[in-house]
Nucleic acid binder design. Structure first.
Lengths: 236, 236
DNA sequence: GTAATAGTGTCTTTCAGACAATATCGA
DNA sequence: TCGATATTGTCTGAAAGACACTATTAC
């Protein structure tokens, strides 16, 4: 009972698509590579899985090592890429993860990374990313766009407590659309098991104070619970 | 420029969830394993990726070798599993694929497989599958259930040409519900770019002959195009 | 008071679901 | 003719989108 010798032994990498919303724009966490291949080129944070390590552990470890960010949100596997033709060093399988994060944290470059920074998604799409990271990024963004429709995952971009307007701006940034504040308010607050009203209100706002909400205690981040969902406008 | 020596070198497996609809029931393709580990136990078809081979190629190859079925439908990656704690031989990463197939083909066991057979999903869920294949199967079924809502993928279970009633029975089998034939007919035929009427009708039916449809030429199997989608009843 | 933002109500259209009614076959 | 299945139509309720309107703050 052993693994057949014909089986290929492959290095396994993890790459993490970390998204956040800053200044009402969707941004991705990138690093400039300190080592070849693609030295100096921007890339998704990531690295190789070590012996006796899970891919989730590798993703968390690499994220801390390269960017100083400790995954605060929900880490979700996207899919795997490769192993053929994606790394000039030879066949490598990459397992990609998606992390949606509030934007408190300022990345600081660590080991193997010259720089670590948030980049506007529009700019990132113009950038020539290392490896097949442009494809991985596109898949991650599409997953995030689809998932906030029918899961409470949009709250992962917000701090613990937030207003309906803040939540709406998350949806607007991720989908790249403008939403009617009045209709959004109705849908968000009337969707069962999505939001919980703290009973408190904001103070520093320009107009009428907004009620402060948090994620409903019955909402489980990962699963699909929004019924009815908050659907993207058909224009997308 | 070389892969760091600390990187683990892992055997990479592929496992394929092949689903079909037989006798109005959702069935999965299983093999009884001819070799340890889990010798004699039912499992998803699959095997190890060889050198210089893509995981898609490995999936197709293993499917033919173990079951004699040549993928006719749409092969789609589910996600990866492992590498920790899923194979008694040691760390192994598995990339799982989903294939939706019409049920023409009769599997015949080949290399490493004692038997290859379609098993009713309900029975498969009672079965003690090898490795983590119960989880992979559950994920594959859930992906199929979700995907036929907003993609034309349900037609992958049908022959080239089919009637609305046949398509409805696919939805009923995959979702495990009964659908109103009249409402389903209206939704299926009025969804743009989903079905194309061949202009011909069935002859051997019991009642009024049914129009024969095929997938609309503009429909791309993989992408989400059904607008509006064919939603699952809320009871699910 | 005005400007600004929060939140509610109302109307129209679309669509899902229930189900009546009609159409077209075999026997 | 009847039984069976296909297909169309009609009604009702839910919800989305547009948007008038009210509420509550800072100034």
């Amino acid at each position: 009972m052993s693994i057949p010798p014909s089986a290929a032994l492959l290095p396994v990498a993890v790459d993490i698509v970390v998204l956040t919303v800053r200044d009402q724009r969707l941004c991705v966490l990138l690093v400039d590579r300190g080592l070849p291949p693609f030295q100096g080129r921007p890339a998704l944070p990531g690295g190789f899985v070590l012996a006796d390590e899970s891919t989730e552990q590798a993703a968390s470890r690499e994220l801390v090592e390269e960017t100083g960010l400790r995954p605060p949100g929900h880490l979700e596997q996207l899919r795997s890429y490769g192993p053929v033709g994606r790394d000039p060093r030879g066949p490598t399988l990459s397992v990609a993860y998606l992390l949606l994060s509030p934007s408190f944290e300022v990345p600081r470059p660590g080991r193997d990374a010259l720089r670590a920074y948030w980049l506007d998604l529009e700019d990132a799409r113009q950038t020539d990313l290392a490896f097949d990271h442009a494809q991985i990024l596109a898949d991650g963004v599409e997953r995030a766009r689809a998932k906030i429709e029918y899961s409470p995952l949009a709250t992962a971009f917000c701090p613990e407590e937030f207003t309906i307007a803040e939540l709406r701006k998350v949806y607007e940034a991720v989908w790249g659309v403008e939403l009617d504040p009045r209709n959004f308010h109705r849908k968000a607050t009337r969707t069962p098991r999505f939001l919980a009203d703290t009973g408190r209100v904001t103070s520093e706002s320009a107009g009428r104070p907004a009620s402060i909400y948090r994620l409903h205690p019955d909402a489980r981040m990962a699963e699909a619970v929004l019924q009815p969902p908050l659907l993207r406008p058909a224009s997308l």
